[in-house]
Design a protein around this nucleic acid. Structure first.
Lengths: 223, 223, 223, 223
DNA sequence: TATGAATGAGCATTCATTCAT
DNA sequence: AATGAATGAATGCTCATTCAT
């Protein structure tokens, strides 16, 4: 409640820094504040305060609140995708690539809760202009996973019918992972690896069944 | 620009209605407005306008904006849970119960997009006080599903080790469903039943593997 | 939106120019920007941008915004008075002097619309400190015209009563000319000479009547 | 400089007044403040303060600053035109109509300096959107005067050539009157009637010459 | 000489909320 | 029961102005 009470000043307010540095400072502060209060309750005043910079600098360097938020999302999305890409090395088998991707994802979320909060919870709900970045990121993730599934599928001689479902499957996986990560924020005592394993099982086992034609349908459950 | 422009007035502003009716009017309007603009962008002015009721009435009957939103969530959560409960009839086999539950869920979301928007997207992101309702609802859903899985597991003679995972599995399913429903809002041309089927496969197949000890681990993939 | 969009950069930002040159650059830019947006909407940023000079230079050379504006007015006022003086050559008869003065005035406004805008429209309304320059200029103009009228009057043997009205008459003429010039800005297709002629008629004919004692009064209209 | 120092509170802050009354209060205050500081330096805070009303009321009743200013101009323009119209009674001879019109004009400006300041000085220079009201008012005034001149001209058997000049003559008169009134603000010790008389002479004498073909031209001055 | 970096201070605007009737 | 009238308190944003280099 207190306006100034627990305000932690950011970096030692050093002067005359090059623009690049200031921009990073500001973005760091913005991610922190946005993740804490959400887009709407975050005030430019607090961000400037946390960043150790006056408000006009924020406007000069990163534009209005919307732009600032968008840039936060962009930066964090790139960070997340890079972390994942680093895990998915192409010399591995598809399943190990997937595993390392998931592991990297949950590891990243574990290390950057704030980033994930901003990326997922805030960006999802803050309304229109922001979701685009998210959608793009998700689309890239889905494509990536889809490729892995497809590679496996074709090497295992799956028929085209089943192959068609891979993208949907990938989408479901991505959604489930987001959901898991989100849920995780409220249950922080579970290790990242456990979540990754659970996600891997969900997708891999389910996918295995799919490939083998084990499909549940209302009329003949469990065939 | 115009304050009154395309504002669709709600019910004919008739006077002296019993409290119960007024409350419903107000809640209906609130759900509509919240789902449209999100919690923060929704203004009490617009809600009162849409409801065809003056603002002081809203405060008198349903309290401040937060309370109003909370009440919206509560009402819609109850509606959703009731719809699901109606699907899950205890005389069915567990898998059919699950199937009908999923079907009811996606059917409800299909019929009440606004409600789901408020329930999930807005409530998730609007910050603290609101998530409690959500968590409760989710907890109840998880318990329900967990019971189904457990019943199946025990009837199939699963060992206690595997049985322990059921709750996590249920949680994952719930999360995946939410995620699917959420994603669905942006891809509205898919029929509800298709989503229900996909969800069912994800959980049932994966669960089947789990019960049979088919578990993927980093060390012996696909054992 | 874009900060730099269609901003036409002024002179090639060459370095180390003598102060005199810089000052002219800056004043030129300032007159342009002030005339375009008005005193209040003109931003130092834009002026510095148009001038091709950094803001601190402006402050170093010409002081704060007010000073800068004052200097603009001063410079343009001098320019205008010089143009007029050039027209009013003392070897001519008074009426031809007046005519050439008016002609020069409207010619100048025609050629320097920006200058006139700044001088009259902006300076008039921008508030206190600026009007002084204007008043001085106007006073000089009135004196000049009054002298012409007086010379004519005395050569025509006017009585002292009528002679007293000359200054007021001069003031009215100046006001009318300003007003005409101002109105002209919004009707740019009329040639300068036409306006000069109209002004001349207004003052000369009216003055002629005045000298002859043809005065309208409420009691004996059109006497 | 002091923010609150000489702030004269407006009407005894009485509560629960009908909208109509509040609107008038607000407009009165706005005219006063705008006339004093000019559009840009006037702050909504001061206006609300002088009006004895909170800022939100201003926005609710009269919109943003621009709208408020526009409304001020509109109201004052109407007031001025009404005052003039009352003077110009159609049963009079044209010259007496003109005289009473001028008399009413200068009388109004005398009694409502603030209104005139807002109408003329501020509105002229505050930039785009506001000048329209002014132009309309001026156009109506010109039309009115033109009609008077034309009536006289035709009754005196003027040729069509001369008749053509009447509108321009009317425009010049209006401009001259504005200019005179404006100049008057800085020389307040002259009685209104004197100005009206001067204006009348300017236009009527000049017009008389015009009708008689007494026209000054550069080539045959004083012909 | 010349400027990128930096800010204090102010202003329009909005909104949830409450009286007085 | 119902509401028009009214406001306190914030918040996003801008701009003239000045250091430090």
């Amino acid at each position: 409640m207190s306006v100034d009470g627990d305000r932690r000043r950011g970096p030692e307010r050093s002067r005359r820094l090059p623009r690049e540095v200031r921009e990073r400072q500001i973005l760091d502060a913005a991610v922190r504040v946005f993740s804490e209060h959400g887009y709407h309750y975050a005030s430019m005043d607090e961000i400037s305060d946390v960043a150790g910079v006056s408000k006009p600098m924020i406007y000069a360097y990163l534009g209005a609140k919307e732009d600032l938020f968008t840039e936060c999302i962009r930066r964090e999305a790139i960070g997340l995708m890079e972390a994942i890409s680093k895990g998915v090395r192409s010399e591995l088998t598809p399943d190990m690539q997937l595993w390392h991707g998931l592991d990297a994802f949950f590891g990243y979320v574990d290390d950057h809760r704030e980033s994930w909060l901003v990326l997922h919870r805030q960006a999802t709900s803050a309304g229109g202009p922001f979701s685009r970045q998210l959608l793009e990121m998700r689309a890239r993730a889905i494509t990536l996973i889809d490729a892995l599934l497809t590679k496996t599928a074709s090497s295992e001689g799956m028929d085209s019918q089943a192959r068609k479902g891979t993208e949907a499957h990938a989408a479901a996986l991505v959604g489930a992972c987001e959901s898991l990560a989100d849920w995780w924020l409220d249950h922080p005592d579970i290790p990242a690896r456990v979540l990754a394993t659970r996600a891997m099982n969900l997708v891999w086992m389910g996918f295995g069944d799919l490939m083998e034609g084990n499909v549940w349908t209302p009329t003949h459950p469990e065939s």
